[in-house]
Nucleic acid binder design. Structure first.
Lengths: 374, 374
DNA sequence: CAAATCCGCGAGAGCGCTCTCCGATCCTGG
DNA sequence: CCAGGATCGGAGAGCGCTCTCGCGGATTTG
C-alpha cells in the first residue's frame, strides 16, 4: 500500500501548516542493544543479570520469584523502558487480549450506516463494553459488518488469532453474523436474542415487561384508545415489545390495539403515526418500540394539531439522550444498556477463559423513565 | 469461495467437544496436521508441494510466482482453510495493521463519560474513521483515555507494537494526550487543532469561517441584537468560533456581542441563555458554539416566552442529528465530520508508511445548514 | 554454441516471547 | 549432620511468519 491518488481527494485544503517533526529526544529508552529500537526481554535480562525466563516470570507474575531478584528485574525494566511485545506473546500463548466489537446488520442501499453511529444507542453499548473490558486489559477492535465480505473478515480475524472473541450488536433481525460465529465455533456474545434460536450467549432486556410497563402507565394516565408503532417484526425484540404491549392492553380491557409498522427510524415513526391517525382519529395514547419512532410520532401528532401529552400521550423505548432533550421530553422504557454491555463483556471473557462453557443468557429488567410526553 | 465439504484431504479434526448444542459438522477447517488447530503456512506448503517461502509470496503477492504454482498454492490454501496468523506476521514485519482510536479528555468527577459516546459527534467521527480504514485492512482499536493511567496505557500499547499509530479525538482543550504522543515520537493525528502548538498532524474545520457564516446569516435575516454562547475558551475551536463570530458581527455594524460561556453541554447552554436574557432583553439572534448548547438556549428562550425563530433566531454548530430532530429544527454550521475523520485516517496511514514525513494539517470548510431555527 | 543474464524457488535464520524441563540451592526432619 | 523434598533460576525449544541469500534452469546475447 503505497499511495493511492484514486482515493477521495481531500476537499478544501486551506492552510497546510507544516512543522518540523521533532526527534523525540527524551524517550525513556535506555540500555538497549538490539537494532530494532525497542528493548526486549533479552535486554532487560542482561541489565538485570538474570535470564530471560526470570524476567518473563516477573512480568507475568506466574511463579514465585525471590523478592530481591524481583526488585532488580523491576529496576531493569524501568531503566530500559521495557514493554512486552504483544505479538510475540500472543504467538506463543495463542491469546491476543483483544476482542472484536461487531456492529452488524444487513446492507441497506443508500443508507451508509453512519446512522448506526449517529444513533446514541450504539455509542452507549460500545461505551459500556469498553468500561467492562478495560480492567481486564482487553482491547476492543471495532468492526462494521454490513456486507458478506465484512462478515467473513470478522470470522477470519477471529480464526487467524487477531482477536479472542466477538461482541455483536446487530441492527436487524436476520443478521447472518451470529450464525456464522456459531458455525465457526468462535467465542461470541450478542446483544438481544438472535432472530432464530442458535447456541449463542446473549443478553437482552425483558421486552415484554417493558411493553407492559408502558401499557400500564398509559392506562393509569387515563388513556382509553391506544395504538402501537412497532419495529420490524423479524426482529425478536420488536416482536416481543408489540405482543407484550398488546397482551397488557388486553388485560386492561383494550382487546384491539391499532398497530402500524416502522423500522426504528424517525421517518418511519412519523409515517406510521400519520397512518394511524388516518384510521383512528380518537387515539389518546401511543407506544412506539423505540425513541426515534416515538419522536417521529410526536412530530406527526403535532402536525395534525394534537397536543402531546394533553391530547395524546406518547411513550418510547430505549430512554435515549435524544428523547431526554426533545420537547416534550419523552417518557420511555429504559433498558440498562451500559450494564447489559458490561455483562456481554463478562460472559465473553468467561467463555474465552473456558471454551467448554455452555451458552448463557442474561435478561435485564427494564424500568419506566417518566418525562413529559406521557 | 465455495468449498465443497466433500474434499477433506487429510483427516480433518477441529476442536470438538467445545460446543455442546450444535454439532458443527460443516466447519470449513480441513487439512491441517499440526497440533494446535489452525493450519499454518507449513501445512499449506506441504499440501501444495512447495516451500513455505513460496506460499508466503503467494499470500502477500510480493514477488512474481509462476502462475501455475500460484494456482496450486491457492488451491491448497482453500482446501486447508488457511488464514495467516497475524501475531506471527507482525512479529517479523513490525507492523500490526491496527491503529488506536483514542477518545480522550480530562477526567471529570462524577461524569462517567458515557456522555462521550451518547454524543453523536463521537459516533460520527469513529464511523468515518472506520470507513476510511477498512479498505486498507487496518483495524481500529478503541480506547478511552480519561485518566493518566489510561493515557499511559495508550502509549504503552503503541510502544509495544500493539498498534501502529493513534487517531485522537479530544473532548477538552488541555488534553495531555497529544503531547504525550509527540513526546514518545509515535505516529498520530488529532481531531481539531491542539490546545498548544506541537508538531502533530491534525484536521480541523475553519471555525472562524463557520462563525462568520452564522453571523452573516443572522444579519441577513434581519437580526440587530445578537449574542453568543461560547464553549470553554481553553479549547481553540471554541475560541475561534467566538472571535470569528465577534469579528464578523463587527464588520456588520454590531461592535459588541454579549457573550456567555458554556461547556458544550445542554445544561450550560440553557444557563448561558438564561443569563444572557437577564442582561440583554432585546436579543433577536443567538449563535451557540455547538448544537447541544443551542438546544439548551432554545429551551431557555421558550421558557422565557420567546418564540424561535420568530422572536429570536438561533444557530448552532456541528449539524448534529440532535439538531435535525428537535423542533424547531436547528440551523447549524456543518462540519464535514466523516470526511474529516477519513482524512485523519489517511494522514495517519501515510505517516505510518513514511515515518520521516513532516506533520501536516488539513482544514475543512464549513457550510451552513439552514433549518427552522434561524 | 558457449557465456552471461535473469528469474523463480527453496533453505534457513531469526522476530520476542512463553514454558517445559533440569539443575542448583535451601530447608526440614530424622 | 545428612538424606529427601521443595523451591527457584537458567537453558533451550519452538510459536508461525517474513525475508535475505543463493542456486538451478531458462532465456538471451556475443
Amino acid at each position: 500500500m503505497a499511495d493511492d491518488p484514486a482515493d477521495a481527494p481531500p476537499p478544501a485544503r486551506l492552510g497546510a501548516g507544516t512543522l518540523e517533526a521533532t526527534p523525540p529526544s527524551g524517550t525513556p529508552v535506555a540500555g538497549r542493544a538490539s537494532g530494532t529500537g525497542a528493548p526486549t526481554l533479552e535486554d532487560v535480562a542482561r541489565v538485570a543479570g538474570v535470564s530471560r525466563a526470570t524476567v518473563s516470570r516477573v512480568v507475568n507474575g506466574q511463579r514465585r520469584v525471590a523478592a530481591e531478584i524481583q526488585a532488580v528485574v523491576r529496576e531493569a525494566i524501568a531503566t530500559t523502558g521495557y514493554v512486552p511485545n504483544l505479538a510475540a506473546r500472543s504467538l506463543v500463548t495463542r491469546r491476543t487480549g483483544a476482542v472484536i466489537v461487531v456492529v452488524s446488520g444487513a446492507e441497506e442501499q443508500g443508507s451508509p450506516s453512519t446512522i448506526d453511529f449517529a444513533d446514541p444507542f450504539f455509542g452507549r453499548v460500545v461505551g459500556g463494553m469498553l468500561r467492562a473490558l478495560r480492567p481486564h486489559d482487553v482491547d476492543p477492535i471495532l468492526m462494521l459488518a454490513e456486507t458478506d465480505f465484512d462478515r467473513s473478515r470478522v470470522i477470519s480475524s477471529l480464526r487467524n488469532g487477531n482477536a479472542d472473541g466477538a461482541l455483536v450488536v446487530s441492527t436487524r433481525g436476520e443478521d447472518p453474523m451470529p450464525a456464522l460465529l456459531v458455525e465457526a465455533g468462535l467465542p461470541a456474545v450478542v446483544f438481544a436474542r438472535p432472530g432464530r434460536p442458535i447456541p449463542l450467549s446473549f443478553v437482552d432486556v425483558a421486552n415484554r415487561d417493558g411493553a407492559r410497563l408502558a401499557a400500564e402507565h398509559l392506562v393509569a394516565r387515563g388513556c382509553r384508545h391506544v395504538a402501537a408503532i412497532s419495529g420490524p417484526l423479524d426482529v425478536p425484540s420488536a416482536q416481543d415489545r408489540l405482543s407484550g404491549f398488546q397482551d397488557a392492553m388486553a388485560r386492561h380491557g383494550q382487546a384491539f390495539v391499532p398497530t402500524a409498522g416502522g423500522n426504528f427510524t424517525y421517518e418511519s415513526g412519523l409515517a406510521a403515526m400519520t397512518a394511524l391517525l388516518d384510521g383512528y382519529g380518537d387515539l389518546d395514547g401511543v407506544f412506539a418500540s423505540n425513541d426515534l419512532m416515538a419522536l417521529g410520532a410526536i412530530e406527526a401528532l403535532q402536525a395534525a394539531g394534537r397536543r402531546v401529552p394533553e391530547d395524546v400521550r406518547v411513550i418510547g423505548f430505549d430512554d435515549s439522550s435524544l428523547g431526554a432533550l426533545s420537547r416534550p421530553a419523552l417518557t420511555s422504557v429504559r433498558q440498562p444498556i451500559e450494564e447489559m454491555a458490561a455483562e456481554m463483556a463478562r460472559i465473553l471473557l468467561d467463555t474465552i477463559a473456558d471454551p467448554g462453557r455452555r451458552v448463557t443468557s442474561t435478561i435485564f429488567e427494564p424500568t419506566l423513565r417518566i418525562r413529559a410526553s406521557a
